[in-house]
Design a protein around this nucleic acid. Structure first.
Length: 887
RNA sequence: UGGCACGUAGCUCAGUGGUAGAGCGCCGCCUUGACACGGCGGAGGCCGGCAGUUCAAUCCUGCCCGUGCCAACCA
């Protein structure tokens, strides 16, 4: 026979290093994958063979933190699994460089501020600012120069991110890269605007809008957060016009008193029945304002009657609209009290001189300072609303803790400032949005409730304009009438073919540059889009929506959207909204939500607490596979502590694979089929593992898949099967070549299958061991392109007499090991003789695997004893005599 | 105040309507021809509390307590 001379493709273990050099291997394999384009998406394959990932574009101006490792690994594990399943994986990478975080970073880094009126400098020379420079005033640079600096910084930041992601082994197709500020994204984003405009989903409006006084830009509902802040109730006495009546309102914002435009109480409140319809007079400023009833006033709160100002909060806006109240805007865009004069139609007063005197005290001040000052003014009896009323401030302010709305990136409370803004109409589409959200499958399921709660609680349309610089320009111009006033209804939207445009430098069709800002001409919109307006298009950015119908058809909707839960209300929500508004579609079939990374003490990581972990040192210390192991051990949606112990376990697992691979592939033997009972039983067990792990992956449960694979590898493979088959594999058991070949064949099969099951989690070590022999043997140079193990693969193997053979062998081996441990002898000590007791049935089951057990335990002579008192399936070892310890 | 999630060994976490699991840590032993970046053995838990459903509850239901997140309350 010619075949019995055929040898397994083995390796010489002595030529391998003693220890796995992970840092070296990580760089080597990253290059290999890149050169061979292992992760390249093939545009020619059909949609049903494609798996599309809508990758989160990280904010590159933010610092790298361990959370990036965590959630991106979750995605990558799935990507690698799907690729091995034979799917054509589309796995792009985007960088979110657009917007405020970058601006802020540039401002700090170079110590500059953007001043649109500053002259453009052809060659801008700026260096990172020194501590000394930071003490002086920031340098003012033009908008184009500022944008140039933003681009300079983001290029550097992107490199850092790419470096991390490559080192981590993310199987990204780096040819599919985008940045949310690049030409392609500006184009898609502006086309999105045009499409929404044509469909009637957009409007612009001059109205009170949430405004950050530091960034000096409007902010959307989704970007607000509430922070608990100390405040105080101030009780202030008002008078009634033409009457002797007085009443006391309670307010936390006394500085808005000059902006008081009305007073309201609940219509059923018996205390204030006779006031409705009359005018109140404010103290200090003596402004007459209407008193009206409103269901929104709560008789239980404060004194039950309150002042309405332009604008203290959202309810003020509502009252202002519904009651048609005056507009007395006090707080300017920079957060200080604007100069106003009393004694005219806008700011009427019964005593303008006094009003102006009081106001002069607080004009130009910031909100906090103005509040302190006005409290003092309210102590002045002369300031009473009615003659002889005494000091308007009743008693001392009563301190309270209350929640105040902030821009999530801001440092001072939001103000409501009337400004012209663009909005996407969403409030009228809540139920349609909910239906779309329901069509998407959320993993874990309960995360849908976050989306639902947010959508149901929506209280404002989406404000998409920002008064900033580094972002996608809103592609519109406005006609100017003969007196130079913009016509905000006659909007000139750029044509799709001309996009992307910058209306501050490009000219609308039919006009020329000379007409810019001239009466009868046009003016360009200088606002940019909210970052989310672009980020909400990542599926379309990848699919080239509106540019390439064929590609779009293959890549949209995407299969999965991985993201974390805190941005469900922004990124997930807006993306669902866009897909619905553009094509009445869902943007992806599944949303895969990662939890948060907590610090080792299970506290939320935050910069202010200084407990943020940077990823590279952890990767250096525990290897990329170790870091991935930690990430992948966490179930979706579960907040997870960055516990070094878990990283360590991952690193240890990779080492174990290295060593096990070295042993298994180091065995030389003739090629024979798997035929010995123990080997067949092992293969049967392996089949069960493949089925369970595959099912877990299909169920988006990567953590279970990893845990099952790891447990099998450690418990069944290295700690038992490998030990039991070892002697036979080495040909030391005195069996024939067929038995030896069987052992080696099944050891290799076990290694082969386990490596492939581990490959999505531990791409480096699995590729390394794969490369030693399987790459050539299987004709697949990268394990990451190898077929995912299937039960069908094992169909050609003969079944064992009974699958229980494996467990019986292990139970007996464990019992003998325990006897050795109890006698404190090494596991390698030879046994001269022992008695193995078990019930008759168990004993019979042991027979076909007994040889391997005796060989593995180095047992020279044995007696089998049937003993019904021993529990079925287990063994008692008696009358053990150990050989003397060899010299 | 409401919604969601979580509460299991010292720590980090799995898990199941039928005698409770892993890793780390701890204790004892073993320098074994893949691996001391190992191996073997062991100790350690009224599965947050109280009720209910069930033959049987750590698991299902209700209430309570605690933790986290989200949202509301913001005069």
């Amino acid at each position: 026979m010619g075949t019995d001379k055929l040898q397994f493709r083995s390796i010489d273990p002595s030529k391998l290093p003693k220890h796995f050099d992970a840092p070296e291997a990580e760089q080597r394999w990253d290059r290999f994958w890149e050169e061979r384009a292992i992760f390249a998406w093939d545009p020619n394959r059909p949609r049903d063979e494609t798996f599309v990932i809508d990758t989160p574009p990280p904010t590159v101006s933010g610092s790298l933190h361990i959370g990036h490792v965590f959630s991106y690994t979750h995605t990558d594990v799935l990507a690698r699994y799907k690729r091995m399943k034979g799917l054509n994986v589309f796995y792009p990478m985007g960088w979110d460089d657009n917007g405020l975080p970058t601006e802020r970073r540039v401002q700090n880094y170079f110590h500059v501020r953007c001043d649109p009126s500053a002259p453009f400098e052809e060659v801008l020379e700026v260096e990172p600012a020194s501590a000394k420079q930071r003490k002086s005033h920031p340098r003012l640079v033009s908008r184009p120069n500022f944008i140039e600096l933003c681009e300079r910084v983001t290029v550097e930041d992107e490199k850092a991110f790419e470096g991390l992601f490559r080192r981590l082994g993310l199987s990204i197709d780096w040819r599919q890269q985008y940045a949310t500020i690049d030409r392609h994204c500006r184009l898609i984003s502006q086309r999105s605007f045009r499409d929404l405009y044509e469909k009637g989903h957009l409007y612009n409006r001059d109205a009170p809008t949430a405004w950050d006084v530091d960034f000096q830009t409007a902010v959307a509902q989704a970007e607000m957060e509430e922070r608990s802040r100390p405040g105080a109730f101030h009780h202030v006495e008002f008078a009634v016009e033409g009457d002797t009546g007085r009443f006391v309102i309670a307010t936390t914002r006394p500085e808005l008193l000059p902006a008081c435009v009305g007073v309201t109480a609940h219509p059923d409140d018996p205390r204030y029945q006779d006031l409705f319809g009359k005018n109140a007079v404010t103290p200090l400023f003596r402004v007459p304002v209407p008193i009206f009833p409103s269901e929104l006033a709560d008789p239980e709160k404060g004194t039950g009657i309150l002042m309405v100002c332009t604008f203290g909060d959202q309810t003020d806006v509502q009252w202002w609209r519904e009651e048609g109240l005056a507009l007395r805007q006090l707080i300017g865009r920079n957060g200080t009290l604007m100069p106003v004069a009393f004694g005219n139609d806008e700011f009427p007063s019964a005593d303008a001189d006094a009003a102006n005197r009081y106001y002069a005290e607080i004009a130009g001040k910031g909100v906090n300072q103005a509040r302190k000052l006005i409290v003092e003014l309210l102590r002045d009896p002369d300031g009473a609303a009615a003659v002889g009323g005494g000091a308007p401030l009743q008693a001392e302010p009563e301190p309270i803790e209350h929640n105040v709305k902030f821009y999530e990136k801001g440092d001072r409370p939001l103000e409501l400032v009337p400004t012209r803004q663009w909005f996407v109409r969403l409030l009228d589409k809540q139920s349609a949005l909910l239906a779309k959200g329901e069509q998407v499958q959320w993993h874990p399921k309960f995360m849908y409730s976050r989306f639902r709660d947010w959508t149901e609680g929506l209280n404002a349309d989406w404000c998409i304009s920002r008064q900033r610089y580094f972002g996608v320009p809103i592609p519109v111009w406005y006609r100017l009438d003969e007196s130079g006033v913009p016509d905000y209804d006659g909007v000139l939207v750029a044509e799709p073919e001309r996009m992307p445009v910058d209306p501050t430098t490009d000219v609308p069709t039919g006009f020329d540059e000379g007409q810019r800002d001239q009466p009868g001409g046009f003016t360009g919109e200088s606002d940019i889009f909210d970052t989310w307006f672009t980020s909400s298009l990542t599926p379309q950015i990848g699919s080239h929506w509106s540019l390439d119908a064929e590609r779009h058809g293959k890549l949209f909707p995407a299969d999965i959207r991985p993201q974390s839960h805190e941005i469900i209300r922004t990124w997930a929500f807006y993306t669902i909204a866009k897909a619905m508004l553009h094509e009445d579609e869902i943007p992806w079939r599944h949303v895969v939500i990662s939890g948060w990374v907590l610090d080792p003490d299970r506290k939320k990581m935050s910069k202010s607490q200084g407990n943020v972990l940077t990823p590279m040192p952890l990767i250096e210390k525990f290897t990329a596979d170790g870091a991935r192991y930690w990430s992948a051990s966490a179930r979706l949606g579960t907040d997870t502590a960055a516990d070094e112990k878990v990283f360590k376990v991952g690193k240890r697992l990779a080492t174990k694979l290295f060593n096990a691979g070295k042993f298994v592939l180091g065995q030389t033997a003739e090629v024979h089929p798997v035929q010995t009972e123990l080997d067949r039983a092992f293969v049967a067990k392996l089949r069960g593992l493949i089925e369970r792990v595959t099912a877990s992956f299909e169920d988006f449960n990567h953590a279970q898949a990893l845990s099952d694979t790891e447990a099998f590898f450690w418990t069944h493979f290295t700690d038992s099967y490998l030990e039991l088959a070892k002697t036979r594999a080495r040909g030391e058991a005195g069996d024939g070549e067929a038995e030896r070949g069987s052992a080696v064949a099944s050891l290799r099969l076990g290694l082969d299958v386990l490596l492939r099951l581990f490959a999505p989690f531990l791409p480096y070590i699995s590729e390394e061991v794969w490369s030693w022999a399987f790459a050539v043997e299987k004709g697949e140079s990268s394990i990451h392109r190898a077929a995912w193990p299937s039960a069908a693969e094992l169909d050609g193997f003969d079944a064992p007499a009974t699958e229980a053979s494996f467990d019986v062998a292990v139970a007996c081996w464990n019992a003998i090991n325990k006897a050795k441990a109890d006698s404190e002898v090494s596991m390698g000590r030879e046994v001269e003789a022992l008695t193995i007791a078990a019930d008759a049935e168990t004993l019979a089951g042991l027979e076909p695997v007994l040889g391997d057990v005796l060989a593995a335990t180095r047992c020279r002579a044995h007696t089998l004893a049937a003993d019904a008192s021993v529990e079925a399936g287990s063994f008692a070892v008696r009358e053990v005599r150990f050989a003397p310890k060899p010299d």
